[in-house]
Design a protein around this nucleic acid. Structure first.
Lengths: 253, 253
DNA sequence: CTTGACCCTCACGTAACGGCAGGCTCCACT
DNA sequence: AGTGGAGCCTGCCGTTACGTGAGGGTCAAG
């Protein structure tokens, strides 16, 4: 019982040498050794290794990892929570970088050259910032986002009018279905959801079922959206969201 | 003309030694030297440095960076695009790690211990894209979300009318500021942003600056929102988002 | 004409391993 | 019982991307 270096290395996707190194510096010493001196890693060792690799991935120096893993009164859950926190912060950082890249691209295509300060805005300060779950950020900077921006930039006033008119019709359809007591996962509601998805795809960007789910969540999360629906019928917003989900489920996505 | 090592170092948030190093290995040699041997970095040097730091951040070894930056026929835009792509991939990876952490937390609180294989699933192989699976779930179940739902459920038709009227006034304010050519990070725009944030907080839920940023991104990301603003003035949506960000920056958040 | 901030070039130190040498151990097969 | 190959051990030197002075010029301000 217990795992050999080679097994652990394969499992964790690191080299044997790395495990030797962690043993040398006392970061992760196997719980046991065989009579002939072979390393034997216990399950507890594996858990520790998991945490080590996580913190390492996030750029912590090994010495510091040793400290935080050995600090008394810290259990598994503490670390998982901290790692979760660190991850979202890091994602935030990368998203800022994405935004910076987009600005740079824009400046580039417009032939403007950035000032030195603008150029490095994103690198200099890594703010010790509180993060908060950001809603629409999920797909900010994705392909769909770009597509949408490009297409919308080209739309005329007339286009907008037709676009909103079409949207209004779908909304009214939802309102009617809802007040009529039709289920959100029924034929009618799902049909309207699909219509809406097509609407977005036609006018804005390629709206996958997954993205469509996201939109549904956004509609209930943000009151500005709800303001379009709730006055028609209280609860309509959530009804629409549920319809989007049902429709996505039906499509097997 | 040209910048000294110290200036460049401060700008880019690296040490002088790092710049010396990049010079030594030929990754980034300053365009000129003064008579006394001082390094002088040109604007082109700065742009190169920008790319160097980006690729470095993403884990590329310096030697490789030198190769891809020197490869013939690659201009700025090529690199920006590639960086953008790399960033989104990296974000995807981190999101998978987040999901893994969440699974681990669940297992932990339920007293289940993971098998060795499960433990390292996320590290070893980076899977062919199958993420985004839980798109909307990010907001679902958060505090703000629940709060919003509870409050909105209690709103009467009159409440909605007042709510939308208030929102409309803010929107018109933005439209005017925008067409007047006022900057998004100016007093007026930021004031309107703050007004909007207060509006949300009063009617819906406790809207932190971070959440407010998120809303701004949502406005540009979703055409249904844009439909409210773009017809008033093309580009207004992004203007509003920028104002939200500026306002959040001002609040030090 | 001095002083403090800034710059230069060696040159050695460090972190986190990679890689190899030289030698034991294990077990499956003949 | 013997043997071959996979796996393990402990050194030990190499590498990357800098950190950290040492020892000494440079430059604008007072």
């Amino acid at each position: 019982m217990g795992h050999s270096v080679g097994q652990v290395a394969r499992l964790a996707g690191v080299t044997v040498r790395t495990l030797h190194h962690y043993d040398e510096i006392g970061l992760l010493s196997p719980g046991q050794r065989t009579a002939s001196g072979y390393r034997r890693y216990t399950d507890a060792d594996l858990e520790r290794l998991q945490h080590v690799l996580f913190y390492r991935e996030l750029g912590f120096p090994l010495e510091e990892i040793a400290v935080i893993l050995d600090e008394p009164g810290s259990d598994t859950l503490t670390h998982l929570r901290r790692q979760h926190e660190l991850l979202s912060r890091r994602i935030g950082r990368l998203r800022e970088m994405t935004a910076a890249i987009e600005r740079a691209m824009e400046a580039n295509t417009m032939g403007i050259s950035l000032t030195p300060e603008e150029r490095f805005e994103l690198f200099g300060d890594f703010r010790p910032e509180e993060h908060e779950a950001e809603a629409g950020e999920l797909w900010g900077g994705t392909e769909a986002f770009e597509q949408s921006r490009r297409r919308m930039a080209k739309m005329t006033k007339d286009d907008w009018a037709r676009f909103t008119a079409e949207a209004a019709r779908t909304t009214e359809g939802f309102a009617k279905a809802f007040t009529d007591g039709l289920p959100a996962d029924g034929e009618v509601a799902m049909g309207l959801a699909e219509e809406h998805r097509a609407h977005i795809t036609r006018w804005c960007y390629d709206c996958s079922y997954e993205i469509h789910r996201g939109l549904g969540e956004m509609y209930v999360a943000d009151p500005r959206f709800a303001a379009n629906y709730e006055p028609l019928a209280p609860g309509l917003t959530r009804y629409i969201r549920d319809a989007f989900h049902a429709n996505a489920d039906r499509a097997g996505s």
